[in-house]
């Protein structure tokens, strides 16, 4: 582990932190275009963050230290997750810290902290949001695990760098089982990141909120960190998806010189642009589900992933 790999690690993290709000901004832009609205500028999330960082924190009078610490913990876990996911290169010093299953665990830690913080003030909406978010969590996690099971069967590993290297060895071969898994993954991604059809990130109706209800009591820099962390979460999920299903272009071990890294960044940006547009399209075409339809939706994702598993075991493909 030399200086170069540390620099590479550091640049991966900085790239994630910088690109995450832009990715969110890009999705918002695409969505606005698809809905024939005039789109906000790409850097709108950044402007929002700057505004929030400059405001005074209005803190509920009996907020506990847990409530104040949670935004930092959320941000910290998401940045660390970004350091582990091979978004542009596989040979990262942090890559062995956690495999894909442990990554789900890290995301779950962040979710539990946010839910606890939402319950801290003791408002009706906060607790309701916490309950719903935890519910979506326990429905989504089995489906996500089955997706990883598919990936494991093809490569014999749940470590994301090993997965990427295994797929990159024989490029452009699409496995039928992975196709099912990819659809399941996208469904889980939408649910886990509080997007339509499970939650609506731009809703103004408190009773239908999940993520927004949990952060209602946050303001100023705390809210900025929470929002940045949720942008990072979406970015991280997208990068996990790239590593699992379209790993081409990620600089693999031994082929990670400066040029290869630049190329990998360019490929990543193209992938993000395409993925953002696709997500916006999915969101524009679907309506938000009632909260008790969420189990059916996530059961569907689960079944797709299981189907992929069976296809693999039966057909060996």
């Amino acid at each position: 582990m030399g200086v170069i790999s540390l620099v590479r690690q550091f640049s991966v993290v900085l790239l994630a932190v910088a690109l995450a709000p832009l990715f969110a901004g890009w999705i918002a832009q695409c969505r606005a275009w698809l809905q024939s609205r005039s789109a906000p500028p790409l850097v709108q999330p950044y402007r929002m963050l700057r505004k929030l960082f400059n405001k005074d924190v209005a803190l509920a009078k009996d907020a506990s230290p847990l409530f104040r610490a949670t935004p930092y913990i959320l941000f910290g876990t998401m940045v660390l997750a970004a350091a582990i996911i091979p978004s542009i290169a596989t040979d990262l010093p942090f890559a062995r810290v956690a495999d894909a299953i442990a990554l789900i665990g890290i995301f779950a830690t962040a979710r539990v902290f946010l839910s606890l913080a939402a319950m801290d003030i003791g408002t009706a909406f906060g607790t309701m949001g916490a309950r719903r978010d935890m519910m979506v969590g326990f429905l989504a996690e089995p489906a996500l695990l089955m997706v990883l099971f598919n990936a494991f069967l093809l490569s014999g590993s749940t470590a994301l760098p090993s997965l990427v290297e295994a797929y990159s060895a024989h490029p452009l071969s699409m496995n039928p089982s992975l196709t099912f898994a990819a659809v399941a993954f996208v469904m889980v991604l939408l649910a886990e990141n509080s997007r339509i059809p499970i939650d609506n990130p731009t809703t103004h109706l408190e009773l239908t909120m999940i993520h927004e209800a949990m952060v209602l009591e946050y303001s100023a820099r705390h809210l900025a960190l929470v929002e940045w962390a949720s942008d990072l979460k979406l970015f991280n999920y997208a990068c996990i998806g790239f590593a699992l299903f379209i790993p081409w272009g990620i600089a693999t071990h031994g082929a990670d010189g400066g040029l290869a890294l630049l190329l990998a960044v360019a490929v990543l940006i193209v992938k993000l642009l395409l993925a953002g547009a696709a997500l916006a399209l999915v969101e524009a075409l679907s309506a938000k589900l009632r909260i008790f339809r969420a189990p059916e939706y996530l059961a569907m994702a689960f079944l797709l992933a299981v189907l992929g598993l069976l296809v693999h075991i039966l057909l060996g493909a």
């Binding site: 941000f75 910290g76 942090f94 062995r96 956690a98 495999d99 590993s157 470590a159 090993s162």
Partner: peptide, 20 residues
């Protein structure tokens, strides 16, 4: 095997503490 799956609680905690 390390290529199959690995986990490090210490680095995880250290990393989160440093980032926070």
């Amino acid at each position: 095997a390390p290529a199959q799956a690995s986990y490090s609680g210490l680095v995880l905690v250290g990393g989160i503490v440093v980032v926070v």
